[in-house]
Amino acid sequence: MSDVNSEAPTVALMDQLPDASIQGQSPLFHADLATVAKKGPKTGGVVFKEQALMGQITLRLNAENAEQLKAAEKVLGVSLPTQPLTSVESGDVSVRWISPDEWLIIVPGLKAFDVESALHAALSGHYQVVNVSGGWTVFMLSGKNARDVLQKSAPVDVHPAAFPVGKVVTTVFAKSSAIIRRAGDDQYELVVRRSFADYLWLWLQDASREYGLVVEA
């Protein structure tokens, strides 16, 4: 496919974090998870942890364009997963397959602007890189009953036979939506919209009640 623009367009880039010393607030800031973790139970079937203030970057390009794939790999240190519903992880960078031409990259929040800039510098042709860090937050669910909570909340099959470690699905989650990745044997990562973070935090507390919910800060 030929590229729409033969000339490289100028992309306006803005660092959303002007100063690392300015304290950011995660969408669950008001829930004061540190206090909840301190006062709450220490053992239970489900462990909840918010990975606050991560950096999320949406990357769209043509998966059949070897040049673009190579450029993205050079920046990220890992090759983009082109197999549907897979993810890769290397150090503090993780990449999720979202669609045949779309990936979600998660890096530590303070690194997001560097990765975003590097992707813009490396890629050429018809592509899109958007720093969507403000729009999402990441929940980690673990423990022996974490899978039971997912089964109550989402219509996808999360049985280990159908949901191996590393698999990613974007799906309906408790009438909202989430990008669910199996990060480990009993460990699931939920990337959720920040506007739904509070609702899903309440939902997860309710859904985990019968197994015992442990909150980690």
Binding site: P84, L85, S99, P155, T171, V172
Partner: peptide, 12 residues
């Protein structure tokens, strides 16, 4: 056909 698996109607 893009995800390569069956999903519930709710997602469509």
């Amino acid at each position: 056909p893009y995800c390569g698996e069956h999903r519930e109607e709710e997602e469509f």
